[in-house]
Amino acid sequence: MLTASISLRDVGRRFGATRALADVDLDLKPGVIGLLGPNGAGKTTLLRLLATALPPTQGQVSVLGLDPEVPAERTGIRRQLGYLPQEVGFPRGFTAFAFVDYIALLKEWTEPAARHAEVRRVLDLVGLSDLGPKRIRAMSGGQRRRVALAQALLGSPLVLILDEPTTGVDPEQRVTLRTVLAEIARTSIVVLSTHQTEDVAALCERVIVLDRGRVRYDGPVTDLVGQAAGRVWLADEPDPAASVSWRTGTGRYRNVGVHARDGVEHVEPSLEDAYLLLRGGSPESKPAEEVAS
């Protein structure tokens, strides 16, 4: 009996001289875990490690109590895995149904009636039940993304790894997707990498912030947001004391910084505020760390 758990001990990954991940220690249990970080922080590398698509160059990864380095155990993990990569290409001429059906076959759904029922179920989950016979090449970007997501949901996997699942998906579908993921997370580990902090705020109990390959924060979303309490304020001008400021739709400036001046108008912080504060207010991406090989 497999239990839904993932552990990483001192895990690192290098690509030549570039260190994409370093000293990552994590224990993941069922629930939705948000993964935040700037571009190049190592999010995709971490997800590929969890999805058995990439081996670590340092440390130990255990998924469902199995070792992905051992071929037989890796197959065991893959039987319980759903993975949505950041970018998915589709073969020419495939319809949505045919593509998901093909992946279902590779996921060992060999009995046609059960497989077809499962394909219809996941297409329905992502709101594509009417578009099954449509060629993927003729679909919009958001619809293609949902086809890719549908294949990850096949078989209600114990481990669901999603790399930016809501990219190009309309707000209505995003809300639907949140419902689906929340339901799956009752028994499964759902790791969700995204730049959409509102998705993390709405879905996740726990958030991991990566920066330059290292875990910068790992804990409850509420705690991270709480760290920003009293550090977000509105003003008529950008405040020099703030780490980051931007003009809101009301014409006033939202300021985020460690040291707010006295007498300013404090507002309730959002996860985005907390994230920016954690990162030192820099919305700029930083490259992965270079190390001597």
């Binding site: 076959l105 060992e108 060999t110 059960a114 029922a117 989950l125 709101g127 209600s156 028994t187």
Partner: peptide, 26 residues
């Protein structure tokens, strides 16, 4: 949204069964 979320995972089919089905598909 009428889809159910009931888990419907297959038994780990023997590799040979998957291979035969995949070969037929190809």
């Amino acid at each position: 949204m009428s889809a159910t979320l009931a888990a419907a995972r297959p038994e780990a089919a023997a590799g040979r069964t998957t291979f035969v089905a995949l070969a037929a598909r190809e």
